[in-house]
Nucleic acid binder design. Structure first.
Length: 419
RNA sequence: GUGGGUGUAGCUCAACUGGUUAGAGCACCGGAUUGUGGUUCCGGAGGCUGUGGGUUCAAGUCCCAUCACUCACCCCA
């Protein structure tokens, strides 16, 4: 245990070299798949004006009401470290008139987010998501492509035991009617509801459906089902989404209580869970938000997207950390050879050969040990004798064979080796 | 915000119901005749037992507080 008083902030974590290559591999996989689907990366600032979230995500949501890192800067601006990315991407989409340049915009991101919650397995205060947002299409094939893309990534990462849960929360009219129906239904039971559910009754009654309290679940057993409040268009849309999913053989579970916590959702909502995680088992959540762009001051534009938690993906997948080992380790004997060593190293690196050498002027034995520890394929040994006759010894560390060659032939020689 | 669990070496863990100088494995550094790694053998370094108080002849061990980590609730990625 370190006595040092200076530590990383609670809920944040360092990604050390023994993990960082896993992150790089994951990011590379995501980038390749995004490329295949024709999505372009968008990068937005780490912080935004707080209204982006209070208006876009909704004042009554947990994220905005109790989880944001917000502050007033020296100029008096109210700023917030982004706790989610759909609203900032929508803001950027509006600000730069992306909808005018292209009728469809398919965007993706890999980014860090911040929420002040009690940390837990798979939940951190700074965490990372990758996700996509599609602006400009309200048609069901868009919904299905978005879901298919998410599944594609997860399968590529070797995730098993995934469940896709699917629901439609309908259009705004439908939600209004349904909201009233829920309130009417719950009114006689109001006194039996928990404090939070009573609050939600007024603010966001649909969220009560998400409760995990057995008592409330019992009450909700006979609650009205949202599907009875869909408009014809809502129903057709959802049916098409389901049919297309079946068509491309993606299994799903209907989940009428999946209402999603954020205000901007309309129609399709979905969540993908992994049973290889703890309580925080959602690795991906998303849905359609046809009203968001307009709500943030843009022209009415349909949209849909998802976000997936990278820490959770890494927890659920068991991929190895593939360290890219050094290929050549240069061993030098005596201080006179140092200039030759560093020069040789630079030349090898110019030829894209991963090369390192000893900085501590240690014994040859220690240097050889280091070469082995670093997983080098070859050691190049330069001592006083070699310096004199302008040669080096090249030793294959897997076979222990070694041979002496002249210094000016090293580059050519290395190219002939199976590196 | 609420509850449970855990704090001993860089890491994983020992130390019988309180009883000498707190141990081991891994990792690290060095050595096993001169300029050669992995396996083996030998050696070395590394701890105010999270912190503060209390009980006791005696505390890593018991009690209290505090801090940190962790899991869970709420909610979500």
């Amino acid at each position: 245990m370190s006595k040092s008083p200076i530590r990383s902030v609670k809920g944040t974590q360092d990604i050390l070299p023994d993990q960082s290559t896993r992150w790089q591999d994951l990011e590379l996989t995501i980038q390749k798949i995004m490329d295949c689907y024709g999505y372009k990366e968008i990068r937005t600032p780490a912080f935004e004006h707080s209204e982006v979230f209070s208006q876009g995500v909704g004042e009554e949501t947990d994220i905005v009401s109790k989880e944001m890192y917000s502050w007033t800067d020296q100029g008096g601006d109210n700023l917030t470290l982004k706790p989610e990315l759909t609203a900032p991407v929508a803001r950027s989409f509006i600000q730069h008139n992306l909808g005018v340049q292209n009728s469809i915009n398919k965007l993706y991101y890999i980014d860090a987010l911040f929420r002040r919650e009690r940390p837990q397995k798979g939940r951190y205060r700074q965490f990372h998501q990758f996700g996509i947002e599609v602006f400009g299409s309200e048609n069901p094939e868009t919904d299905v492509e978005v879901i298919a893309l998410a599944m594609h990534v997860f399968h590529k990462l070797g995730l098993k035991e995934l469940t896709l849960q699917l629901n439609s929360i309908g259009s705004p009219e439908c939600r209004n009617n349904y909201r009233n129906a829920i309130k009417n239904f719950l009114a006689p039971h109001f006194d039996q509801l928990s404090q939070t559910s009573q609050d939600r009754y007024n603010n966001n009654p649909l969220r009560i459906l998400d409760t995990k309290s057995p008592d409330e679940k019992e009450i909700l057993k006979d609650a009205p089902n949202i599907s009875n409040y869909w408009t014809i268009d809502d129903k057709n849309h959802f049916d098409e989404v389901c049919n297309l999913l079946k068509h491309i053989k993606i299994d799903y579970q209907l989940s009428p209580s999946l209402v999603r916590g954020l205000d901007y959702y309309t129609r399709t909502t979905f969540e993908i869970t992994s049973n290889e995680l703890g309580a925080q088992n959602a690795i991906c959540g998303g849905g359609r938000y046809d009203g968001l762009v307009e709500k943030l001051g843009g022209k009415p534009t349909p949209g849909i997207g998802f976000a997936a938690g990278i820490e959770r993906l890494l927890l659920a997948s068991s991929s190895d950390n593939k360290i890219r080992n050094i290929q050549i380790y240069i061993v030098g004997i005596g201080n006179d050879v140092r200039p030759t060593m560093i020069n040789l190293a630079e030349e090898l690196r110019s030829n894209d050969i991963r090369t390192s050498f000893d900085y501590l002027r240690r014994s040859i034995k220690a240097q050889m040990r280091e070469a082995n520890k670093l997983g080098a394929q070859y050691a190049i040994i330069i001592g006083e004798d070699e310096l004199k006759d302008k040669s080096v010894i090249i030793k294959d560390l897997s076979t222990s064979n070694q041979e002496k060659i002249t210094l000016d032939l090293v580059q050519k020689y290395m190219k002939s080796l199976p590196l």
